[in-house]
């Protein structure tokens, strides 16, 4: 029983990371029909921004040593700038291109970012110690909950609530939702297309920087490909949840976290190496039953 609870808490924490990443991908997909595989590399940028650029094996903190009140906005700002630059240099020239073209563009961005990180920081993974205090455990009865998992969940819920309030209550949020549903019609009503897209990139940058900090604290290491598996699993989460639906992206993120954690815990040891294969088999199963995802987006269903 305690074992199961412990696993559930792990699943929630991993699911939070996937859900936040999936939200960043889902937001851009909703507005731009862009499947942004470079989102994982935005996370990498946020993580590497913590340390001094050098090829040394041991990481020396740069922004990572700042006071937290300064560090959070600094990391967020760097990732936002990277995201906006990506839009300006790559996706704006491709504005009238088809979704597959945009996706291939995002692969290009992904490789460029990875190689830039490689050149500046070297190829070897680096150990990094961010907020080691957060690894203390809270003991509730027989249950040991790492503080970090609690923080992860709280931060995730707070960001989701913030995003939800922004989308529902602010004029820019309403414009973004309108643009996600019918971009051209929104433009006909005076919604500035490039502005709304830039806003979506900026928000996905904020989400990516939050994931970067949580993930680095958890894993304690940096590598130039660290964002790739995150983006892949988050993309799977977006697909399971229903392309274009933000609620779906969150549901999908938590579900993927749950599946991966449970497989890791309960698969026979011999099969654990194939955990991801089982996870993706489950995804195929979900899509066979619900091809439009668990929470289909209204507008994409109509478009078919």
């Amino acid at each position: 029983m305690i074992g199961l609870l412990q696993n559930l808490i792990d699943a929630l924490s991993l699911g939070s990371i996937y859900a936040l990443t999936a939200l960043g991908i889902g937001l851009l997909f909703g507005i731009l029909r862009l499947i942004n595989f470079a989102h994982g590399d935005f996370i990498t940028i946020g993580a590497y921004a913590l340390i001094v650029p050098s090829a040394d094996v041991t990481a020396r903190m740069l922004i990572g040593d700042f006071n937290i009140a300064l560090m959070l906005p600094a990391i967020a700002l760097i990732v936002i700038v990277a995201a906006l630059l990506t839009d300006a240099l790559v996706f704006r020239p491709l504005r009238r291109s088809s979704p597959p073209t945009l996706m291939i563009g995002s692969f290009a961005v992904s490789y460029i970012i990875q190689n830039a990180v490689l050149m500046m920081y070297g190829s070897r993974p680096k150990a990094i110690n961010l907020w080691s205090d957060a690894n203390t455990q809270v003991i509730i009865g027989d249950l040991r909950v790492p503080m970090l998992q609690v923080i992860t969940l709280v931060v995730t819920l707070a960001l989701m609530a913030g995003l939800s309030v922004f989308l529902k209550k602010s004029r820019y949020g309403v414009q973004m939702r309108a643009a996600a549903e019918d971009f051209r019609m929104a433009q006909y009503l005076g919604v500035r297309g490039n502005f709304v897209i830039g806003l979506a990139f900026a928000i996905s940058g904020i989400l990516a920087s939050a994931v970067a900090l949580l993930y680095v604290t958890q894993s304690g290491s940096l590598s130039h490909t660290m964002g790739v598996p995150l983006a892949l699993f988050a993309f799977v989460a977006v697909v399971i949840g229903g392309m274009g639906s933000l609620v779906g992206a969150v549901v999908g993120g938590f579900l993927v976290g749950f599946i991966v954690t449970m497989l890791q815990a309960y698969l026979p040891p011999d099969l654990r190496a194939f955990r991801d294969a089982f996870a993706f088999a489950f995804v195929i199963l979900v899509l066979l039953v619900r091809p439009a995802g668990l929470v289909p987006a209204r507008n994409t269903v109509e478009r078919v």
Binding site: A178, E181, V191, N299
Partner: peptide
């Protein structure tokens, strides 16, 4: 905009 409310449609 079908997922927005009537009021939000007007607000746009």
């Amino acid at each position: 905009f079908g997922s927005l409310t009537v009021d939000e449609n007007l607000a746009i």
